[in-house]
Computed example of a mutant assay.
Amino acid sequence: MRRRHIGWAAGAAAAALVAAGAITYAVAEDTGGPRTRTPGAESADAGFARDMAVHHQQAVEMSYIVRDRTKNEEVRRLAYDIAQTQANQRGMLLGWLDLWGLPKVSAEPPMTWMGMGRMASGEDGALMPGMATNTELKKLGSLSGERAEVFYLQLMTDHHKGGVHMAEGCVARCAVGVEKRLARGMVEAQRSEIELMTGMLRERGAGPRS
């Protein structure tokens, strides 16, 4: 386990360095020209970057929780992949905000950039569509074995459905090309993972919650 953790940390660090270079080049290409305007603080580009960074952080948190609650290699591998992918994407989103000179938090409610605002904010810590509540996160941390696997897969399926909805909103509303491309990639990847998790739930005699 120690060797695997060290390997993951090294891989994540290397990926972060590569992502940082990609961020600088790609955003400079899309927003650095004299005729191109940097997104404003209340733009869809900034709103998506802020909100999806928060959304992704919870996916990483849930993945770390289930990793310690099961020994099933298939679920642990999926959790590892989701945690690594979304942590790297989160770094890119926050990196863009830095490069644009925009705040990482806003006084506006989450999802305002999609015209949802306070309608999107649920109760008990679920700030955006698909996010787990604080109660659900606590429950996940109390389960083990197959029960933890099923609940994680159900929570993450809901989380991905909310993420797809947000990413599609960016594809429709964002102006920065590199961000729209990332959003399209999120839609494709998370839809694929939803199908995978549906099959994994079926193998465990369960299914998505919605």
Rank of each mutant, 00 (worst) to 15 (best):
G117M: 08
G130P: 03
L94V: 05
E149A: 03
M119W: 10
I6K: 11
L93A: 04
G199C: 06
W96G: 00
V18T: 15
R209G: 11
T133K: 05
A132C: 08
T70C: 00
K161H: 12
L155S: 05
G21H: 06
I65W: 04
V60W: 04
D68S: 15
A13F: 14
W100Y: 13
R90E: 09
Y64L: 15
A120R: 01
L182Q: 05
A87C: 07
Y80A: 14
V75L: 01
Y25N: 11
E108L: 15
E123K: 14
G95N: 04
M131D: 02
R181Q: 15
K161V: 12
E29M: 15
D30P: 05
A79P: 01
R37Y: 09
A20T: 12
V54A: 14
M1V: 11
Q190P: 00
A120M: 05
K180Q: 14
G207S: 11
M200N: 00
Q57K: 13
A19G: 08
Q86A: 10
W8S: 12
L78H: 05
S43T: 04
Y25W: 14
P109G: 08
G125S: 10
L143I: 08
E168H: 09
L97G: 02
M62L: 15
I23A: 14
L182I: 10
E149C: 03
G125R: 03
A53W: 00
M111W: 04
A15Y: 05
G91E: 01
C170S: 09
M116F: 11
V150K: 07
R202I: 08
D81P: 04
G205N: 09
A20L: 12
P34M: 13
R191F: 05
A14N: 12
D51N: 11
R191T: 13
G177N: 08
G163K: 02
Y152N: 01
T31R: 06
A41Y: 01
A22Y: 12
P110V: 08
V60D: 11
R3Q: 13
H56N: 11
A59K: 03
H56G: 07
G185F: 07
H160D: 06
G125C: 10
R118T: 12
L155R: 00
V171Y: 02
V66C: 03
A49D: 01
A87Y: 05
E74L: 10
L17Q: 13
G33L: 13
